[in-house]
Design a protein around this nucleic acid. Structure first.
Lengths: 147, 147
DNA sequence: CGTACTCCTTCAAGTAACTTGAGGTTCAAG
DNA sequence: CTTGAACCTCAAGTTACTTGAAGGAGTACG
């Protein structure tokens, strides 16, 4: 089998994981990644383990988990003593947040849609200050939306 | 008729418009609100015009418009020489962004939903490192999602 | 061995839209 | 005149990075 060890510079690691090089340095700085090994000249080097960890972080971020949640997920993903319900609970919590955001955005979409089409029908091309959008915007949403 | 002039302190204005007092000072600092009149002692005072302008800003922000968009909308809302299609275009642009965000979030919701229910079925209570969520998370989304 | 070129280094500041905190002043009531 | 709430300014914190300046390291070519 092919057990050759890959060594990455920060740039190649960045490409492999799909993040930017400053982001990698930033993750090191805040402790998401361990301090990198260095060449004699002081440049960072990485191996496949680092790539694995970084890829995991990237996935979590893409799923919308915050940095602090990623920290916990990283711990959980290498722990054999902690319970997997913790992981599920974090995912559930995040799912709830996503759903709240979704319903806010759905309401927003409807209202903006209404603004645009009413403007097209009622006042497009007219004087700026008379636009129906300004009147529409003064009417508060039923059910509340937005932060 | 009742033409009594209302005068607000920053705190009462904040309550009336539904924003915080530091936010009002911040809006003044960045030029969204004109420099407030002051008492002899240096405290800010406001009138109904200020309340109107601040309320308008607040509405725009609630609709998710960015500060720079609010600047333009403020201009448009008091302009008689500019065309109302500008307003509609800003709303349309924002609507497009909302829709993009919506489709990202819908995909995210589905995937997170899947994570949680699969964990409940397959591994809830098991060792942290074996959670199916970690395996699921490694599978990239079809169609792409997230930033 | 020089030199050209890319990639790397650190450190500081910028981004959005505010919030929080420290330390001190003004106002209204009693 | 004193108390206490509300106000003032200025600086720093928040999130998750990005951008920029000034200079060093690594590699390929002649």
């Amino acid at each position: 089998m092919n057990l050759h060890i890959r060594v990455f510079t920060i740039g190649t690691l960045a490409k492999a994981a799909g993040v930017s090089t400053p982001t990698i340095r930033y993750y090191e700085e805040i402790g998401l990644l361990p301090p990198a090994h260095r060449t004699a000249g002081g440049q960072r080097t990485y191996d496949d383990d680092d790539l694995g960890r970084l890829t995991f972080i990237k996935q979590c971020r893409d799923f919308g988990f915050g940095i602090d949640q990623v920290r916990v997920l990283l711990d959980l993903s290498i722990s054999d003593s902690r319970d997997c319900t913790e992981t599920r609970d974090i995912a559930q919590l995040h799912l709830n947040e996503v759903r709240e955001k979704l319903s806010e955005l759905r309401l927003l979409e409807q209202r903006l849609e209404g603004f645009v089409s009413r403007c097209n029908v009622a006042c497009a091309g007219g004087p700026g200050q008379d636009c129906v959008i300004f009147k529409d915007m003064s009417a508060p949403a039923k059910g509340g939306c937005c932060g």
